[in-house]
Each structure stands twice: as structure tokens, then as C-alpha cells.
Write a protein that binds this DNA or RNA. Structure first.
Lengths: 138, 138
DNA sequence: GTGTTTGCAAAGTGTTTGCAATTTA
DNA sequence: TAAATTGCAAACACTTTGCAAACAC
């Protein structure tokens, strides 16, 4: 055994999520999950797959990212209108967004903490909380 | 004088920002700023203007919203990919976003406070900080 | 075999842009 | 009248969808 994988194999992830481990989904899952936390757009993932010799259409990349998000494997992060970012870390955490480059970055550890939660309007519940700290070159 | 305006007149705002007070910009500025804090998309503002008898093209609404944002009259809030929201309160504050209805709402007062700011990557500065609390019907 | 998934191309959103006509200063 | 602004339509960027062919179980 050469490497220690932090999580299960891609096949197991897909099975656990009830998604058939097709060639395309497996390849995308490996790209997404085998290198730790990633922040990626559909175009980026498609390019990576293609350059890595994986034949998959852009439409399938979109569909797959959406499916993965639905089953909780990914989290979608809203940072700018017009482009969807997906985060392989689906647990609660926050982000830097580089407005110059479009790069999305985890904010390490607990260095941002919300000191209190607001009162939520009547009959509503809180879903996700997104904190995006926009940064740019000095 | 019938009403007390919390801020200057639309004309003055535009002049102060170095934008010519054209018929379209004046009408849009009134819709945006005369009723206090608003959260609005280009489509919504265009519909409002049209229904209120103001003739203005959707393209001009987009251009105007972008110009207003550039000069600091508005703030753009990223809440979901694919749609831009503009906030007439350009000062630092946070938002509820109703995932069911697409409605964007100020979080009142200081009920959310970031207890500490993260260390920013080398040679970078913090621009805006967006906190979006997603809510939905119970 | 049967139901699922894929790829393609077409369609769908939301937004920006080129340019002639209009408006503003 | 010179420069800025507008409206229209076309272009754009990103994403979704319909459907026949390919695939997984």
C-alpha cells in the first residue's frame, strides 16, 4: 500500500451515496476527493479531466457536480454572480475569495467565528451560513 | 415640504458621484434610494420602473446598477450563482437569504459579529466581507 | 433486458456590448 | 456641438435539458 487515503475509495463514496459508479463519476470523484480540499468550477474540472485523459462532456460534469451536491458530497459556495464554485469540504467553514484571480480558498481553522446568531424570521430555519472574505492584491 | 428625506435628493447623489443626472438615472435612483434599504435585482428594478411609467431599457438598468456600484452608491451581494443582487445600503452589514423565495433581507443591527478576522495571505488586503445566512421555511 | 447515464446540440438564463440615435451640458 | 448616455439587438458566459445511443447491473 503506497498511500493512506483519508477517506474511502471513490467507489465506496458513490455507492454510499446511491450513485452508480460509472466511469465518468469515478474519474470526477477521484479528481475531486483524492487530493484533499478543493474549490473548483465545472469548467476547471472539465479541463482537468480532459487533460488527464478522461473523456467526459461538460454537461456531464455539470450534472455530476449537481448530483454530488445533492447527496452532500460537495457544497456549493456563492462568491460571485455568474459562476458556481463547488467545495469538496462539505462541512461548515468559511472562505477567502480572491477578487483578482477568482481563486477560492479555505479560511483556516476557527479564525473566523460568528459570535452570535441573529434571530431568524418567524417560521424559518437557518440552513447554511456562508462567510466570504473578499481579498485582493495590496 | 411634505417629506423629510433621510439623504440628499437623487440629483445631488448623482452629481456627487460625477454621474450626469439623466432622466433614467434619476428615476432609478429615486426607486432605489427613496424608500430606505432595498435589495433588488436588475430585472426587478426594470419591472418596477416600467410599471411606474418610467421608460428605460433593461440594458440601461444593468449599466446603471453597475455604475452606481462602482461609485459606491450600491453594494453587490453574492447570494447565489447566476443572479446579481444589489443593496442600497453600501455600508458593512450582513444578510439573510430566503432560499425558497430568493428574497434578500438585512440582518438587523449587530446580531452577527465576526469575533476575529483571519490572517490574510501575504500581500493581500481584505475588501468586503459577506455573511449570508441562508434560511428556508420550517 | 431494463432502467440509468451519457453526450451532443439546442435551448435557457442572466448579463454585457457595439453602435446609431438621442440627450445633456 | 461635443461628449456622454440610451436603446436595441446581437453577442456572451454559464448552465440546463431533450433525446437517442451507450452503459451498468
Amino acid at each position: 500500500m503506497k498511500t493512506i487515503r483519508p477517506f474511502t475509495h471513490a467507489v465506496d463514496r458513490l455507492n454510499a451515496a446511491g450513485l452508480r459508479p460509472t466511469r465518468q463519476r469515478l474519474a470526477l470523484a477521484r479528481l475531486l476527493f483524492e487530493d484533499g480540499n478543493r474549490h473548483i468550477t465545472a469548467e476547471q474540472l472539465h479541463r482537468e479531466a480532459t487533460e488527464g485523459g478522461v473523456k467526459v462532456s461538460l454537461a456531464t460534469v455539470y450534472n455530476t457536480l449537481n448530483q454530488f451536491t445533492e447527496v452532500g458530497l460537495l457544497r456549493e459556495v456563492a462568491v460571485e454572480a455568474g459562476r458556481a464554485y463547488f467545495d469538496t469540504n462539505a462541512t461548515a467553514h468559511h472562505h477567502f475569495f480572491n477578487d483578482d484571480t477568482g481563486e477560492l480558498l479555505d479560511i483556516p481553522g476557527d479564525s473566523v467565528v460568528l459570535s452570535s446568531l441573529p434571530d431568524v424570521p418567524e417560521n424559518m430555519v437557518i440552513g447554511a451560513i456562508d462567510v466570504v472574505v473578499h481579498i485582493r492584491n495590496k
